[in-house]
Design a protein around this nucleic acid. Structure first.
Lengths: 222, 222
DNA sequence: TTTTTGTTAATAGTAATACTATTGTATATT
DNA sequence: AATATACAATAGTATTACTATTAACAAAAA
């Protein structure tokens, strides 16, 4: 699985200096994921991160121009990672139905395994995407950042899965809305099931959220 | 329509002093909605609000203990308003199918009319709910705040509409997930259609989002 | 009328935050 | 060995969210 790492590529415009190019950079990313997970995005600061990695606040600014772009970098890394798993996991499947089911599973299910060969903990990263991910685009700078390509990976991923939907049912008029509803929905359903369970119908022991979206999409496009 | 206002009740624990009880309180709420809309939640400060309403920053702290609880107040006011419109708009409908359709329309469609009798601009408030609303529960304090009843109005609303679903199809296993998926989904689909349109399939001239969710739900529960 | 009481807002702060300008230091190149 | 470059650390600034204290003012009581 560690070969996948090579294919996770984040656009270089998202950071001032590639964090993979130095030990300090890897520490910033690795510890940053841990800390945002522990204390939440709002409480997390570059100063605290600097203390944890035995470095200085301003050194971090050499890699990322702001706390916000660090989060944008995480989100893009995550979607790039998911995209590779999607391409890899569907290329040997024959029917679009199988490919779509694989995609649903990949995007909706909880990430449970961590590739320990990397300095990035994918389990924690998945939790950040669920709890903090939407803060990346709920900003007044959205149009500027969109133009800079901050959301390119995500848009490409939605397009790929929409293509599976269209391969099954070419006349379905809302493939993008269906898939973005699923991806975003899966995230806050997981969040709700943990913190506001009365907004969900989750039961322990089985992945109700995967079941729900699989069924929802099958019925929508049939 | 202005009689509805009487029925919009926000739990008193959400503010230190009821803003409806004084002119200053009404200014805080009214101008606060305007300013968050213009500059976004992050850039908005109590200091700037104080300047705009000809008052002092600290006077605002007499009404709301923080910027965050002001947003929580707005969200609760909004859901309370929607809940009243739902109860009022469905009580003379006979079938659960009609009631559910009414609920979908009420929750998914854009708010276009402003009740000018009030100091609260519902059109702007709807925009805040769409662009900033999720920031209310994506916080590390979620469990604390949930216990204090910060999300009670929202949970009650989801329950009401889930009951319509169950009246139509008692065996449907995911009514709450279906409705919370719709409500949250409708918000970011509107946001996406404006800022990241390639994630949607919206066309100008017709309300594709209402169509999409109406069809999605009908097919899901049939 | 004077005094007391309670409610309101304004003043003037604090600690912490995001971010930057500048200086120092190690490494590589000539 | 001298110079150039890349890097990180120091030490800041402006702004933020929030608070402790004081002042204004009205109604009620003496």
């Amino acid at each position: 699985m560690e070969n996948l790492k090579i294919n996770v590529v984040v656009d270089s415009s998202l950071c001032l200096k590639n964090p993979e190019s130095s030990e300090l950079g890897k520490k910033i990313v690795g510890k940053g994921i841990e800390m945002i997970n522990e204390m939440g995005y709002e409480s997390f600061t570059f100063k605290k991160l600097g203390e944890q990695i035995g470095s200085n606040e301003s050194s971090i600014y050499r890699y990322f121009e702001s706390k916000h772009t660090l989060l944008v970098y995480f989100v893009n890394w995550y979607w790039s990672w998911i995209e590779y798993k999607l391409v890899f996991g569907t290329m040997n499947l024959n029917t679009p139905e199988e490919k779509l089911n694989k995609a649903i599973q990949l995007l909706v299910e909880d990430v449970k395994e961590d590739n320990s060969f990397s300095y990035i903990n994918e389990v924690l990263l998945n939790k950040i995407i669920i709890s903090e991910g939407s803060k990346v685009y709920y900003t007044k700078e959205i149009d500027n950042e969109n133009q800079k390509g901050y959301y390119a990976t995500y848009k490409r991923l939605v397009q790929r899965i929409s293509d599976f939907v269209l391969a099954i049912q070419p006349s379905y008029p809302y493939p993008h809305m269906l898939i973005s509803t699923m991806i975003e929905g899966a995230h806050y359903q997981r969040y709700f099931s943990k913190h506001l369970p009365s907004l969900t119908d989750t039961e322990s022991g089985e992945d109700t959220i995967v079941k729900f979206y699989t069924e929802l999409i099958q019925r929508a496009i049939k």
